[in-house]
Design a protein around this nucleic acid. Structure first.
Length: 573
DNA sequence: GTCCGCACTTAGAATAAGTAAC
DNA sequence: GTTACTTATTCTAAGTGCGGAC
């Protein structure tokens, strides 16, 4: 049966497999869990920790105090300097005040939260001082009780089994709702999903769930509606689970099917650049961007509710500039737009003449705020892609291009003669090429300069050590030449080994420095976790004798257990 | 087509844990 | 043992894409 999926996975060293998946869209047959873990209730501040308004100490009602602490905790965060954040916070805070407080506290800038801030800083300091065991015993107990569920005969790890604690909404970029109050979630807000014939999770004493349902067409265990955006939040399984692993595997198999026909698709969209129909030209140019530049699809977003970010289909005139000539290249397209998480995408790319001419056409008679692709959206694009290949959507191109790039780069950069640190540097460089393609950026770590400096100091020291060791070797050799006895020969050998060891250490440090410098603003984790077929990495490790632990940490090995299990060194993406 | 609800993947930041240096 | 820094894990926001109602 084609629809049957056989899934192999190691867990607890027992070979485990699932087969005969149902084809009716059901995701499980049995599901039992203990429900979510709620954050602890609010603990009022001790009286000595005071809030000041307009220079005077003021005791707040518990409700108002709790919301004030959310702000106090963020005092040294940039958020609290932003107007929108402050405005949204103050508005929602006032809703929690008694009428007396409301009439007194009328301006945020007269509020002084510093004592509260200091108090929380001291608390988190104290928490750090707690012994390892103290923290772990409690965490471990909760993890064992709530961190696992049973799904179809297997005990599976749950991803996020804790309910999000109340706080202030931290939207990314220029988010219009940043600073708004994220209310405490109550059991009455929560929907439980589990098997009818399982032991249902108990709501905390004196409370009840909003609903208990038994829907095996979905994978979530717990859900609730988040009131700031009105979206639904879920508790789902850990990436190491069968249900996630299988889906992940499927994702890469879809990308591999794209590989087989991608040249045909490319030929077609190039053909479509000449279409008589505007909608087809737009579709073809957008697809070219998605394929060549690994752009995201770009769904529409509700204006005013979210930060203004775009993807391919939602690009506007203001995000693109055309340069017939630039830096010695023809037909240069300059793209500059805020992407997912408001990360800036900036790129100058030389394109084919037809693409350039089409873009000129799309821009004609338009204003800065107008859509570049006015006859296109993600739904139209994906419908077209679906016709080209079963399961093909815009994001499959990102997966495909990321994985194929890793495979090519690994081939290009690594040689079996390299030593392990060199191989790992090459792996990281291949990974980096993908991260650059996918525009995975990070803020340079706060300690970056210092840590680079420290590393350089280490390198300098190691260099001194090396020259000293070389000197000693030379002297030993001279001794051996004159004395010609066994003992001095042995000394030469030891010194030789020392030189070798130290120069190896130096090389390692230098490689590390290069790696770190090149990684300053680039985040490798996202591509490694979400875009790179793990079988490419596993095969590479096997072929070149690199231990898998050098590439994947424990969590990653758990997530990719299926790939580690099934892949031999000949695997080709 | 358009809109909307829903479920799921992808994302960088924040925080915790681990480790090396002192 | 403590501190300083690195790495792993957690957190939750922000995307994608599907399907159904109109």
């Amino acid at each position: 049966d084609k629809n049957c999926v056989i899934f192999y996975m190691h867990q607890d060293k027992h070979f485990r497999w699932e087969e005969e998946k149902c084809t009716d869209g059901s995701k499980w047959r049995f599901l039992e869990h203990k429900g979510p873990v709620f954050p602890p209730p609010y603990e009022p501040l001790p009286d000595r920790v005071r809030f000041h308004y307009d220079g005077k100490a003021m005791k707040l009602s518990p409700g108002a105090e709790e919301v004030a602490t959310f702000y106090a905790k963020m005092l040294d965060h940039e958020y609290t300097t932003k107007d929108i954040f402050r405005k949204n916070f103050f508005k929602d805070w006032r809703k929690e005040m008694t009428s007396e407080e409301k009439s007194k506290i009328t301006e945020l800038k007269k509020c002084d939260f510093t004592e509260m801030h200091e108090y929380f800083k001291a608390q988190s300091e104290a928490r750090k001082q707690m012994s390892k065991e103290e923290k772990q015993v409690k965490n471990e107990r909760i993890l064992q009780e709530y961190g696992y569920c049973v799904m179809d005969n297997h005990r599976e790890r749950i991803g996020n089994f804790r309910i999000e604690p109340p706080g202030l909404f931290r939207g990314r970029g220029d988010h219009p709702k940043m600073g708004k109050l994220k209310r405490r979630i109550r059991p009455e807000d929560i929907i439980i999903n589990c098997s009818k014939d399982s032991v249902h999770p108990k709501a905390p004493p004196g409370t009840r769930w909003k609903e208990v349902r038994h829907d095996n067409k979905v994978t979530w265990l717990v859900s609730w509606t988040e009131k700031i955006q009105g979206s639904i939040k879920y508790i789902m399984l850990n990436p190491s689970s069968r249900i996630k692993g299988e889906k992940d595997w499927q994702k890469y198999e879809t990308a591999r099917r794209l590989k087989k026909i991608v040249e045909r698709i490319r030929a077609q969209y190039r053909e479509d650049w000449r279409s008589k129909e505007m909608r087809i030209r737009q579709r073809a140019v957008a697809l070219y961007f998605i394929d060549k530049l690994a752009l995201r699809a770009g769904n529409e977003k509700d204006e005013g509710e979210t930060a203004d970010t775009v993807g391919c289909c939602s690009l506007r005139v203001e995000h693109i500039r055309l340069h017939p000539q630039m830096d010695g290249q023809d037909y240069v397209v300059e793209l500059d737009f805020p992407g997912k998480d408001s990360i800036r995408y900036y790129n100058k790319v030389s394109v084919e003449k037809r693409v350039f001419k089409n873009l000129q056409l799309f821009l004609e008679n338009k204003q800065a705020k107008d859509d570049l692709f006015d006859r296109l959206n993600t739904s139209i694009l994906n419908k077209h892609l679906q016709e080209l290949m079963d399961g093909l959507t815009a994001k499959v191109f990102r997966t495909y291009n990321a994985s194929i790039t890793l495979q090519q780069q690994l081939k290009e950069l690594t040689s079996s003669d390299d030593n392990i640190p060199e191989k790992i540097l090459s792996y990281n460089r291949a990974n980096r090429a993908v991260a650059v393609l996918c525009n995975h950026q990070r803020a340079p770590p706060k300690t970056f300069e210092k840590s680079m400096h420290n590393l350089q100091t280490k390198i300098d020291e190691k260099k001194k050590q090396l020259s000293a060791a070389k000197k000693e070797l030379k002297a030993a050799k001279a001794d051996a030449k004159t004395l010609r006895d066994e003992k001095s020969k042995r000394v030469v050998e030891t010194k030789k080994k020392a030189v070798q060891r130290i120069s190896e250490q130096l090389m390692k440090l230098e490689v590390q420095a290069t790696d770190r410098e090149e990684n300053k603003q680039i985040a490798l984790g996202t591509s490694k976790l979400n875009y790179l077929d793990p079988r490419i990495s596993v095969a590479w490790c096997k072929k070149l004798g690199v231990p898998i632990e050098k590439i994947y940490n424990k969590t990653q090995r758990e997530k990719f257990a299926w790939a580690i299990d099934m892949t031999d060194e000949d695997f080709e993406f």
